[in-house]
Design a protein around this nucleic acid. Structure first.
Ligand SMILES: [Mn+2]
Ligand SMILES: [Mn+2]
Ligand SMILES: [Zn+2]
Ligand SMILES: [Zn+2]
Lengths: 155, 155
DNA sequence: TTCCTTAATGTTAACAATTCTCATTATCAT
DNA sequence: ATGATAATGAGAATTGTTAACATTAAGGAA
């Protein structure tokens, strides 16, 4: 008979029952926690490999997916063909924010300049859309695209 | 000496100087124009190949990129690993709208329920961000993610 | 502690979307 | 019509990501 697990042995919030707290997993989490977000899988791989030479790239991908579905991190598309990751607020990341992305160099800026207005509109839209299209809305994303001052210079 | 081109020979808005109006290019544009948006490169490829059996997939990719940088189309990430494309408003597409995407099946819904409120907020944000970060902001994207009624049923 | 189940790992091959190479074709300014 | 060269089609190559599989090790039970 399959033994049920009533309390997770380790204390990591979001790591479900049966999921183990391994060294690579912690290292990948710390890599994201250390640098401020928007790292790609291979950037994380290189950083972790500094302290843990034997780690495999597949392990990085596997754990990023696990952390993502576990709600610890979210992925960001900077338009350079590779997924980028950042810590969620609840996992020690920055607060709720949105992105300003340079179409030429891919720079990603976190901004939080909206306060109440934005939140109010988002709430209203969520209610309206949820009712009209019968969607259960889980999250939203607001992104502005443009040219950063650096790229504007050599244009 | 390189001859300069003062007026494009053909009349296609957005096709720059030196760019030629070829049959594949027109067919790809029409494929997007015919079906209502959110087609992937290989979906476009298959449709165009119906009327133009010799076309190559690389040609589709090349022209999608050209149409995109020319401002005729924009790409949408539905989360299924392949880029999807839709006509811009000015190119005969639907009006300015945003997206509601199902995380499970990838369905993309165009919505336009926002009217003035949203536009006002976006304008305000654009001004504020542009000033604060010295970005030239070209476009924005607002997307809500969730579960469509179909996927919610078999959950 | 020791044992056992099985989640997780590292290596490697496989994959799918996209881009590149290059010889050939076709557009269009002259 | 002609010539310069943008664009094409065929296929190989590249890239980000996932799958297979034999091996290791986390952590609950005894
Ligand atoms: Mn961010
Ligand atoms: Mn759309
Ligand atoms: Zn830039
Ligand atoms: Zn769905």
């Amino acid at each position: 008979m399959p033994r049920r697990c009533w309390r997770g042995g380790h204390g990591w919030r979001g790591l479900g029952c049966g999921q183990r707290l391994t060294a690579p997993r912690q290292a990948i989490y710390q890599a994201l926690s250390g640098a401020q977000g928007h790292l790609s899988a291979d950037e994380i791989f290189l950083r972790v490999r500094g302290r843990m030479p034997g780690i495999g790239l597949a392990t990085v991908y596997r754990n990023l997916e696990l952390l993502r579905t576990g709600g610890h991190i979210r992925s960001v598309d900077a338009g350079d063909g590779k997924a980028r990751y950042e810590l969620h607020q609840a996992a020690g990341g920055p607060g709720h924010h949105h992105h300003l992305i340079c179409r030429q160099c891919g720079q990603v800026i976190d901004y939080m300049d909206f306060e109440k207005d934005e939140l109010a509109l988002v709430k209203k839209l969520e209610t309206q859309l949820s009712g009209k299209y019968k969607y259960q809305i889980a999250e939203h994303d607001i992104t502005f695209y443009g040219t950063c001052p650096n790229c504007a210079k050599r244009d």
